[in-house]
Design a protein around this nucleic acid. Structure first.
Lengths: 147, 147
DNA sequence: TGGGATAACATGGGTTTTTATGGTAGTCAA
DNA sequence: TTGACTACCATAAAAACCCATGTTATCCCA
């Protein structure tokens, strides 16, 4: 699982250290890392190649002309298979840097099965927003067990 | 898996570099490359010979006289088995150049099991369209399930 | 429990390799 | 013999790789 939040530096070559705990998680699962443009937020999403393959398989099951299939194909086009260097760093592809508005700092946010990479300002905004919703509506009612 | 997007140049001999990651994918699968006219879009589709065989098998499952079978047979007729030169380049056959409206630039778009080759303008149009659909309808339900 | 030793991590920079792309020479067929 | 096609060579730019270093976290023992 990808959990916790950390702030890392992006250098001039667009290299950034993936938090060690995320790396360990990938290694343990024997997975390679995929980065892609989030469909919901102005951020990068990271996940395993296995999860990505399930989406690909889903494309074949859908009506090829449907909007869903169209969006999923575009999502693949905006996805990148990422290699680590010996120190656990990756290079963030240019299209992803631009999309997420990244420059010299990245915020890694583990959300379980995947993680987000935000620019510090965008992260702040989203965090504030979550706090406001929490104040207004109270905590979410989690359904932990389905019948 | 064919993932990510890249913009490559087509020279006067209609040669173009296939993105390295696509080539690696083909080599890893021990596959040869097939290019053919997309049935849905004004672009070239590239895939493995194995995947192409599944299309062929699909024809046999259909009513031999149906319009679908007719279309699929036409698709086969416009397919080309492509060889690489030593630098990982291919020559795009004339009929495909014309069909996709290609001249001096090609956009390679990986969509999982296969990839598209677009003219830059056509690619832009499709990308815009996907962003509009995303804004209107939101992300596919499949994506929302994963966290 | 304090504090030094050790390991793990994040980050910087240089070197080598790969990739994309332009060009040339050889080959075959009309 | 000319034109199209293929195989091969050259090069600049980009990416991958490797080594070095400061900083933080962990361990171990007195």
């Amino acid at each position: 699982m990808f959990l916790s939040t950390s702030h890392n530096k992006i250098d001039l070559k667009c290299r950034v250290s993936i938090p060690a705990s995320f790396r360990v998680n990938l290694e343990k699962l024997n997975e390679t890392l995929i980065l892609f443009k989030s469909l919901q937020f102005k951020c990068i999403e990271g996940t395993t190649s296995t999860r990505m393959k399930t989406y690909i398989d889903a494309i074949d099951e859908l009506d090829a002309l449907s909007d869903e299939a169209f969006l999923l194909r575009m999502m693949m086009a905006d996805s990148f298979e990422i290699k680590f260097d010996i120190n656990g760093r990756v290079v963030i592809p240019d299209p992803l840097m631009n999309f997420a508005g990244l420059s010299d700092k990245a915020v890694f946010m583990g959300i379980g099965g995947s993680f987000y990479i935000w620019s510090p300002t965008e992260y702040e905004n989203q965090y504030m927003k979550s706090q406001e919703i929490l104040k207004e509506k109270g905590p979410p009612k989690l359904i932990l067990k389905k019948n």
